[in-house]
Design a protein around this nucleic acid. Structure first.
Lengths: 225, 225, 225, 225
DNA sequence: AATGAATGAGTTTTCATTCAT
DNA sequence: TATGAATGAAAACTCATTCAT
């Protein structure tokens, strides 16, 4: 997989396993209702605490307490603290993926500018869902061991985006498409974050989105001199 | 201070106190030479360990040992662990600031494109200086309590950049300069990081820098339609 | 019961209850076939894990899983972990007892030396049966609460051995028979273990057994000077 | 090293490092008085608890408390629980070694029987020093990782004993000396333990020792028929 | 009876910080 | 001032045991 492409995934900071598992399954067991709920409760509590207090101050005892279960139970579902965080990563990534994919689907047939508008709005929406959590996951957990997991999802997203852009080859005039995608992924990722997490008071969400579209459109359409 | 502006500082991820104090002064005593050296040695050790082992594995006892002083001494210079990290933040920010400011100085009289090239190269160079440290500081220590300190330096940098751009008002055609600066700061910050810390194999530093210049130039020069 | 005699039992390191109960009975219910099998399965699993991983790493959940039953079931058969271990002790002791007793039976009518040879070979065989388990039970579980249980079985074995030796009073010249039995029990116990569990490379099982017979015979036959 | 020989060491169940280190040194530090005392206090507490409650119930918090230090201190001297136990092993082995070696020294020039008497008494004395501790160390801690450490000391002791016996080649008539040493080591080890730790009421220490001498002497002096 | 999810006290270990020397 | 041994609160993780289904 091309590194240039891989980086596209960063836009959603998605982590998850190859065929998009439906959930981080507890050790074994077939059709538990209680279990699934407990598992979710633990992840919810983890997310809440992570947002409130940051990674360093997030400890498994507290998570269990907030989730309304015992530490023992927590460790029945997640073999250790890192696995807990990783599972949260996964769940969050899956949720964002769904939003983004749905948005890309809906772009079918739109004009270039409109498609850009749609996808960028989609990204903004996806980030607004669980803004705080996304922030913490990204800033404080960069170096866990996510690098491997990343690769797989990145492949999905990057190919989707490349597909999206390939619908509009007539309008795109960049000298080097791979390089352009690499540049855009990083720019947009940062901008979406900025817009969602620390938009200055004088700027509306719409203005900011429009400006991102302008930047992207300009960059892709203008031929090199 | 305008939030839009403030954000410019993010480019260098600079942290430091209002009037750029020369150093985080040890508790009292004014004129010791030993102290200054000890203080630096401690910060150096902190930086080294932070890079080698990450924040979680960085502890004060280890820092003291590596710095060749006793823990007791460490606590004579820095009241607690957070202050130690903050001081390292400061020192690093100051160093980057110097590089950036020097670069901006040297742009005087250059043509627009050349000036952009110079400043972007300067940013890249600044980030290459202590890449590993910068990375750790940014990814693992985002949410300490830096937010306040940020503000001050940000003011300096953002005003400098605004000054820089104001030399070229003839060439700049953006509808909203504040918004444009906001957008550029975030884009460039992300791109500089990407280029320095995870450039894909097929892309040279020069290509990437040139592409950033192209993006910036395009964005600033093209009037809205 | 004489302590001197009691100690004879150590030869087989046997533990079990007074009148040789047939099994540690599950809490209630008399005539289930399933139960008996389950009970055995649990003991088998316990033995296997004990040998593979040692006492410290042997836990009831794992035992249940390996036995193919639920923890709940395990606790239906054994009120707690110690009871489980004790039951295994018992079963193992009973099995070794059977081997030893059978061997003693078969000695009837043999000449002294031949009888010694037979009984010592019998002990070696008994220890070879479940060598690993025997080892763990002896080394890692010495001080549970076995001391009491010991007494009873010891009585049986020691009296049997005394009976055996009493067939050959003509040949035995020891000044103090009780003391001699005490000495032999400990010597032979240690030697059988050594021979079975850590025989040096240059020594065959036959040689070692012959040497034990020589030692025993010498010791019992030579009158004090 | 010959396995037959190696086994001689079992008599004292000695563990320790190659050149008989003077003490399990704390992490570094040169001339601490407080430290050495603390270290000893911790080992003493460990020994006491080990004897009172067995290995399973010995935990580091309790050890620290009984030693009158904090858990932190304990971990400053011993990196983990196993190291603590190992250090106790070492200290104990060293102490026993000293007793045994001293005794062997004193045998110089004695007649065979008298020498046997002396060395066996020495072993008994060595075991009486810290009987309870020796018992626990041997029975409950067989499988830690002592096997390696054993080898070294074993070499010392076994060679000493072989030297001792070699003084009396005229009197020794065994067909295979290595085998005989192997047999004697195990027998005596077990007997010394028995005599020290569970001597039956009717037997005095002197009687038992005399009987061990008789056994040994008989065994070594009688030629094979 | 059987099940296995849930419990939580208990264990090991870490590390920021203090303070006697 | 410098030192570094000592501290102990806090965190990660285990496992014997219970109990609702």
């Amino acid at each position: 997989m091309d590194h240039t492409m891989r980086v596209i995934a960063r836009i959603c900071y998605s982590h998850s396993d190859k065929p998009m598992k439906t959930a981080v399954a507890p050790r074994k067991s077939p059709r538990q209702a209680r279990s699934q709920a407990t598992c979710e409760a633990i992840l919810d509590a983890t997310a809440r605490i992570l947002v409130e207090r940051g990674y360093a101050a997030t400890n498994t005892n507290l998570v269990a307490e907030r989730a309304g279960v015992s530490v023992g139970s927590l460790y029945q579902y997640f073999p250790n603290k890192d696995a807990l965080i990783a599972a949260l990563h996964d769940r969050h990534a899956r949720q964002m993926n769904e939003v983004v994919e749905r948005e890309i689907m809906r772009c079918e047939g739109l004009a270039f500018e409109a498609a850009l508008q749609a996808i960028i709005s989609g990204l903004v929406e996806a980030h607004r869902m669980e803004a705080g959590l996304h922030r913490v996951l990204e800033t404080q957990l960069a170096g866990l061991d996510t690098l491997d997991e990343h690769a797989a999802v990145e492949a999905r997203i990057s190919s989707q985006l490349r597909t999206l852009l390939s619908r509009y080859t007539d309008e795109i005039r960049v000298p080097n498409l791979d390089l352009a995608i690499y540049v855009l992924m990083h720019s947009l990722h940062a901008l979406v974050h900025a817009v969602v997490y620390e938009r200055p008071s004088g700027v509306t969400l719409e203005e900011a989105t429009a400006e991102m579209v302008r930047l992207t459109s300009l960059y892709l359409r203008t031929p090199a001199t």
